[in-house]
Design a protein around this nucleic acid. Structure first.
Lengths: 412, 412
DNA sequence: TGCATATAGTTCAGATTGAAAACTAATTGA
DNA sequence: TCAATTAGTTTTCAATCTGAACTATATGCA
């Protein structure tokens, strides 16, 4: 799965044109089935399980699995004992000797991590770095170093890297690897040199929007078990967002959907940095909340600590500031829910720190402005920490590998 | 293509891949290729043309076309002369002896029409009928009569009916044929008896939302040539909407997306009939515009005539009322464009009558609230008349037949 | 008129693929 | 020890597309 522009929307027609295409489709089905979360992580599916799940015959599954094992994407993992009668099956799993790299460039730090095909985060490195206004070249050099460390460690662990994904806080064009606009980094129209990050990885590195990645991480590793359709709102310096519809990211025709921070919540509101007026970001962005709460200038993380402390101490100004942000957030969410037929909202980024104070305001506002559409139980706080975007970027690369297993030669 | 809920987004995991599926996919490709608009309507594609368009071999195309001709979906239409050397090919077209029925129930009228597979509207009947508050049974009985007339005429013309679509102004559940909520008809939770409308039609009748149908009609028969992604806003008694992304309808996870009439455009605005507050509909619905323009009570169409007359006479109150509606419409469109990465807006329904007065206000508002996102050239007025919803409902049924040609026995 | 050339469409052998059924393998339980 | 049961493999077969050879029908020039 790519995070790129989505244009198909539904009954797309990946219809096979040739007999050989059927096989690729079925290989992907097997991989998808193996990637599904297991109720008991110790019990792995057998060929017979896969046959009944996919509807293919045992004979076909045997042949398909043999090909995937040869390609190094799938591994047998000993007998899958079931205590029942009959010959025990052989457990199968996605290879833990292949993986993808997730990367993130944010305002205050960069990070990189390795996810194996089974979906386990095997390595995770973060480096504090004030990237605001720093040149893209220097930040990319730092990142390349961090990734090289991760790659070396992966190599030592016998894991081959197949591809990667990089999340940045801004509008991106995935196809060309361009950051069109990242106001918080002060990058505009920057073409990133993604090619050198993962030398030798057959699938290369794709560039993604940070909020979209976090929304996907939420889907795969967070509240995705509860909701198939939701608006993810990421509080960072600005307010980012991601739309998940039918357990898939809705990226829009040019890959720039989800900009909930620039939904107009009050037409007579203050001017916004985007050139518009009354955008959600002018009410729920960090600057707006800190100013309203009376928190003096400083680094973002220090100010956030102060805000949290004030909230916990029951400070009225802080609570009012956060409630106000929640109120407007609820308005934007109400509009989004009506427009896109969504039924849940997940709050992420710095909003997680304000969870107990902001969520009730969001719920109230939703009840006022879109009664009956998003109930209180459908406003959730993300439980993924700072690694959300990295997980999403890596997960996206992982699904991309599993959805297009062609061109992979046999490996370890 | 169905207008139902869209949830998969593309890489869905339908039925296991069998060798036979390849053929169905290729049959659909041939049909889709034949359904594409032709530059010169008199020049029909030949088998050789189809082979080069689809990438299939001539041999495969011959076999596939033979099957479609046997099924009565495709017809040969004489020699396709090209004046060039070589054996002339045989022109192919979608059969004009098969068709689908489009139907609409609206506040003031009902209508039904027949679209042949080639996309030509062959029959079109409208019946004035004040349906507001009338019982669903009696309206459906009227419609059934109108449809029977259309079916009789179709039969006389030798056209076999394969399926149909019914558009109603309200939230619907396509799967169960339920009108969940149609405030302007005063219908709520009504299950329509769709089965009896088209006896013998193999694909049956599907229920759709009127604004979504109009948005699709715009795509297939209107501004779809200019825009692949747009917000369609339909002014009726309320304000409906449809979202087209990548030349496909975005219907949302439960088929209820596009409710732009209930986007919040002013959090301190008036209460809305939906239970919310400050919705676009409270500023741009018919009642709001008529009240603001000082037009006395009366039938909707009479009041609309008065408004148009006042606008044409340069009446300040009328112009101001319409500008105000356009202002708020632009705000909702700005939010939608940012959220969903859209780049165009098409105005339909009664807004078409106000076109010259409302469009500039929408453009101004978009420039104020989402600068650089939707330019003046991307705000368009629909040129389809009252038949838009009917065309969309029929077109949807047509595409549904072409996308799932299985189960059709040979015909005339 | 006749023949070279060009294009359309058909026929047939060959390759790929999954389904179905028969078969082999490994385990439980009486 | 052996019947019952479940896992996985082998074999045969039908569906489908490709590619190449072939037939059909036109133009254009001598």
């Amino acid at each position: 799965m790519s995070l790129g522009k989505n244009t198909d929307g539904g009954a797309g027609r990946p219809a096979p044109g040739r007999v050989e295409d059927v096989r690729r489709g079925n290989l992907v089905r097997i991989l998808a089935s193996l990637a599904e979360p297991r109720t008991d992580p110790d019990v792995r599916p057998t060929r017979a399980d896969l046959a009944s799940r996919t509807g293919l015959t045992k004979a076909s599954v045997s042949s398909l699995v043999a090909e995937l094992v040869d390609a190094g994407l799938v591994a047998e993992s000993g007998a899958a004992r079931d205590g029942e009668r009959g010959r025990p099956g052989v457990g199968l799993e996605l290879s833990t000797c292949r993986g993808v790299v997730g990367m993130e460039i944010n305002v205050d730090y960069i990070s990189a991590g390795l996810l194996d095909l089974g979906g386990t985060l095997r390595i995770h490195r973060t480096l504090e770095s004030g990237n605001r206004g720093k040149s893209p070249q220097s930040v990319m050099a730092l990142l390349a170093g961090l990734v090289a460390d991760v790659a070396a460690e992966a190599s030592a662990a016998g894991i081959e890297i197949l591809g990667g994904g990089l999340a940045v806080p801004g509008l991106v064009d995935t196809g060309s690897g361009t950051v069109s606009s990242a106001p918080n980094l002060k990058w505009h129209g920057v073409v990133l040199e993604l090619h050198g990050l993962l030398p030798g990885a057959p699938q290369g590195t794709l560039l993604h929007n940070e909020a979209n990645c976090a929304a996907l991480a939420e889907l795969w590793y967070g509240h995705g078990v509860d909701f198939q359709d939701y608006l993810f709102v990421s509080g960072e310096v600005g307010v980012g967002g991601g739309l998940v519809i039918g357990s898939r990211l809705f990226a829009g025709p040019r890959g720039q959907a989800g900009e909930v921070g620039h939904v107009v919540v009050d037409p007579s509101g203050p001017d916004c940095s985007c050139g518009g007026r009354g955008c959600l970001e002018t009410f729920a962005g960090q600057e707006a909340i800190f100013a309203e709460a009376g928190i003096p200038d400083g680094t973002a993380s220090a100010r956030l600590e102060q805000l949290t402390a004030l909230l916990e101490a029951g400070n009225a100004a802080a609570i009012s500031a956060v409630s106000r942000a929640g109120h407007y957030l609820g308005i934007a969410a109400a509009s989004t829910a009506r427009l896109m037929d969504l039924s849940a909202v997940v709050l992420g980024g710095h909003f997680t720190r304000m969870g107990p104070w902001i969520a009730p305001a969001v719920v109230r506002s939703l009840a006022d402005y879109a009664p009956g559409v998003v109930g209180p139980a459908s406003v959730a706080i993300s439980e993924l920490g700072q690694s959300a975007a990295l997980l999403g970027a890596a997960g996206s690369a992982l699904r991309s590998v599993l959805a297009a297993p062609q061109g992979l030669r046999p490996g370890p």
